[in-house]
Design a binder for these strands. Structure first.
Lengths: 239, 239
DNA sequence: GACGGTAGGTGTACGATGTACACCATGTCA
DNA sequence: TGACATGGTGTACATCGTACACCTACCGTC
């Protein structure tokens, strides 16, 4: 009878509660720890109960992405296109930073949900409203790629340096001998010169740097009245 | 006795053969079908035999990436930096296109192998040889991101249109009503105007378009003698 | 007031996966 | 001859997603 009472006391699950719990669990325990079983346990329910609210795990992940996309600020009106888009993308980035697993999940999606399509549609609208041709906007959206979601994959992050200073120095010498160029730019870009492979790297700066190179490039092409040629083959953007 | 004879007849496995077989299996059956068991079966060996050659599945995947990176052409000498880097990255792209699973595996790596570090070191060397400062090169490498491996994630590919022409037209109208901007640029960018969500999209063109926007931007910053400010905060690239 | 349908939760069971651990066969060198 | 390394085997286990059959509570209709 106690289980029965408990079941009754508990408000019935719905899709939204399932998704929010999944997001919270991924935030706390990491995305790799998110299993249907653990999520069910978190909700005080048997694993199969979840399948009344999401078709399968993939759909669960889709829904989690929707939750995150819902956290992105709407476009501000009245601003110039470049600034408006820049702000919006940086807002997307903030949302992703709040949920570190999100970029990996976004990467793994194979279909866009309506929520995701809404966001893309809206970003595209911002370029068009800024006077971009549909043609240029098309390519510009491709060029933005994952950056429109506020992330770029930092492929192959350098391993954390060992704690022991001696080992660290030895490793540094070894790396410098084998990969001199990597070490050269790693130390150049980091704030604190000495510290091995330079984990003084400012991710936010790097993101904005690349975003601005792209946006500046888009602006230039737009001003030039750029359009893709008919044949498309061998076309160069001719900076 | 026959199994014994078979074991003897078979040349002993080594890391290289394991990795090549894994690449071949992923090429044929897709990366999601690559399991330690299936790979072992393919090699006529019991699953646990693989663990004498790779520590675990993650290391197997690391090794597979090394095989692919090994297919990238070495830098051509004597060329101007921009053209040399452009060609090299397009060569990387060709390698990835030969192995469609590779970009996903690269994204999932958490550590760079020596082979990967060699490649990065070499690309960095090409910028430095072109006269780029270590500072600018640092940021430029971040901005390239996954593009230096020859891919950009095409986040959320549009679903393939239904075969039935009537259903296709209905879907088109529905999408156009809900996501007008998406449809506008999708049809603008596609070769064949009418065909629904425009799967005439030329991936190679999009890749080169974005790559050139970036390389042109880098060139401009280089010519201007760009360098990051000391504080780094609020810096804009000032196109 | 009986009844059928639906929404939500349960319980059991299955196949697939990565891999720990103990073991065995072979070849090499002291 | 014997120690040892190298490579392959066999068994076993925990974890995962999820199919399937079932139960229960509720709600609208006759």
């Amino acid at each position: 009878m106690t289980e029965r009472a408990e079941t009754l006391r508990r408000a019935p699950l719905n899709r939204d509660r399932v998704l929010r719990a999944a997001v919270a669990l991924a935030d706390d325990a990491g995305i790799e720890a998110l299993s249907m079983r653990k999520l069910a346990q978190e909700l005080g329910v048997v694993p199969m109960a979840l399948y009344k609210h999401v078709a399968n795990k993939e759909e669960l992940l889709d829904g989690m992405v929707d939750v995150i996309v819902g956290e992105i600020d709407p476009p501000i009106h009245g601003a110039e296109w470049k600034d408006a888009i820049r702000r919006r993308i940086l807002s997307a980035r903030q949302a992703l930073l709040r949920h570190r697993w999100a970029s990996h999940v976004i990467e793994s999606r194979t279909q866009a949900s309506p929520v995701v399509l809404d966001y893309m549609n809206s970003v595209i609208g911002m370029f068009l409203a800024g006077g971009f041709s549909a043609d240029l906007t098309h390519h510009v959206m491709h060029a933005l790629g994952s950056r429109m979601w506020g992330f770029t994959q930092e492929v192959f992050p350098t391993p954390p340096p060992p704690a022991d200073p001696d080992a660290q120095a030895a490793m540094f010498r070894q790396l410098a001998a084998r990969y001199p160029h990597i070490i050269e730019i790693a130390t150049a870009g980091s704030h604190d010169e000495g510290s091995a492979v330079g984990r003084g790297c400012d991710d936010q700066f790097e993101f904005e740097f690349a975003l601005d190179v792209l946006l500046d490039g888009f602006e230039r092409l737009h001003r030039q009245g750029w359009h893709s040629t008919g044949s498309r083959n061998g076309t160069r953007t001719a900076g």
